[in-house]
Amino acid sequence: MAIQVAFWVLAAVIVGAALAVVLQRNIFRAALFLVLCFFTVAGIYVVLSADFLAGAQVLIYVGAIGVLIIFAIMLTRETQRGSPSGRLRLPALLVGLLFLATMVFVIVSTDWHVVAEIPTEPTTSAIAQALFSGEEGFVLAFEIAAALLLAAIIGAIVLVREK
């Protein structure tokens, strides 16, 4: 019961916030709505018993990406224009709706394989086990991700530094 209420409320907020991001003309407000969206997604993760991920979501998305976006907005201020719609909004709307329809159709008509168990334990250690163990783990991917982040940092610095 509680879960259902939580889900519907959170879902409504997510969709509303996302729509606001896309439809708002004031770009700063759009950014704030984006942050709200991120927070609510963290709430969805909690409903799904993914506690570590909820925390990671808040840290990474809200804490880092959200701030980054706001910085970028500040640095590329176009107050007159803000965030107008482009030339392609009608075709984009059409494509989006079609895509949505297709996805819903697929989801509804597929026979999903659902397992009866519900996870109850905290997931942090399990994630850690999975991530860092050698044979069944993702250690290699982890290292590569680290390298990726390094590359991204260096790239960003190179792109942005003053001549």
């Binding site: 494509v95 079609l98 895509f99 297709t102």
Partner: peptide, 17 residues
């Protein structure tokens, strides 16, 4: 960019169809 992106998604929809 956006025109190209639109074309890509139209293509994806066509493939799914």
């Amino acid at each position: 960019l956006q025109a190209y992106g639109l074309a890509i998604f139209i293509g994806i929809l066509a493939i799914i169809a």
